[in-house]
Design a binder for these strands. Structure first.
Lengths: 211, 211
DNA sequence: ACATAAGTCAAACGTTCGTTTCAATCGATC
DNA sequence: GATCGATTGAAACGAACGTTTGACTTATGT
């Protein structure tokens, strides 16, 4: 295996530390120390701490967004009207997938996503590309077809719920790793629980307007 | 109305700023400036920045926990086996309630809770009292009776889902306030959507063990 | 071999951080 | 009205922050 260059080492270290301590809670010095790189390397390779966060966020979310998009492609190739359960699985599944083989990197990835998305620092809010929006729009349309009679706003609310459940679960997993239980099977179990939970939730009849 | 003392003014300011910028992202100076108090007042009244956060968190969560507890009392007084829908409403409802009359303090409160709960700073993790645990245990037992056949771990997963959906929704509401739409009705609508969404999710049949 | 660019390094920049210090002020009690 | 604890004030503490600098080392192309 080729040893990673400094840029990659910094990205790895930053991913780890941002996930664990947040953006404001992570110092550039801590990143470079963990990466075994020089302090100035962050400025040199990324320009600033904020741009480093953006680079980390992009690297983490890109494969997830791609998997969500590919999953929807697959469903739509089979039928123009995929059932709710399969839409839920295609959308939420990639959020549970472990990234490289093994280790806890999957949980850490999720932890990082939540940290970034919920991070109150302004730098952590404006890094998303157009891909995320496109994928969400496509799923929104597919869910709308699968759930006729559901008001668009309530559908949007439910889609947020999908993300919320998966994300918060992974945060919990990350914070309190289950004792003596391999992460992989635990992740698989949580994934199936989430599909059950969310499919039922998405399939609920529309809330009747206030009487 | 009696003007608030310095301690209260600091609590209010800190609640505002912690909600908006997180723990690490908020400086003691910003708090005292907003409160119109002296910098040293934080050390004097609370001891440290971390203890200030704990005080803010306690003040915010106490009434919510109390409302959850009272709601469950009410249900159990009527029947020993409340249905899932009512349990969901009693548990999730207080998370949606606006705190004092009017303004956006409800959304801000929720924002604060999520910020604190998801804040990666260690100081933000160990402030909960025994009350929160007690209430959650009681609801856990009630849900277990209402959902026989559901494995305890999956039930725990689903209860986390309740919190996740409500919390993340409120964060979204806080970050992107809907244009020209009174917060109160929007909050009411989201509340009913959440009840629908979560009742269906909680009522889902148990996930079958892996084949 | 040498010139040129890319990358790394130790050191320092000015700023902001949480906390402490100690004198000044307030309010009640004797 | 003097006394004493409680509170507030301005100033300073050392440490850590993000970023920049300029010299040094490594790799590349000719």
């Amino acid at each position: 295996m080729a040893l990673p260059d400094t840029r990659t080492k910094i990205l790895d270290a930053a991913e780890h530390l941002f996930a664990e301590h947040g953006y404001s809670g992570t110092s550039v010095r801590a990143v470079t120390d963990l990466a075994g790189a020089n302090l100035a390397a962050v400025s040199y390779h990324f320009g600033s701490k904020a741009e480093l966060l953006a680079a980390v966020a992009r690297r983490v979310t890109e494969p997830i967004t791609a998997a969500q998009s590919a999953g929807l492609d697959e469903l739509l190739a089979r039928t123009p009207d995929p059932p709710v359960a399969e839409l839920v699985e295609a959308f939420a599944g990639p959020l549970f997938d472990e990234m490289p083989a093994g280790s806890d990197s999957g949980a850490r990835t999720s932890r990082l996503i939540v940290t970034i998305l919920s991070d109150p620092a302004e730098e952590a809010r404006s890094w998303t590309g157009p891909d995320e929006d496109t994928v969400r729009e496509r799923y929104l349309a597919a869910f709308a077809r699968a759930l006729p009679g559901l008001a668009p706003q309530e559908l949007l609310f439910r889609m947020r719920g999908i993300f919320a459940v998966t994300a918060v679960d992974r945060v919990e997993v990350y914070h309190r790793p289950s004792p003596a239980c391999p992460t992989v099977t635990a992740g698989e179990e949580a994934r199936r629980w989430a599909i059950t939970f969310l499919t039922a939730a998405m399939s609920a009849p529309p809330t009747r307007a206030r009487r």
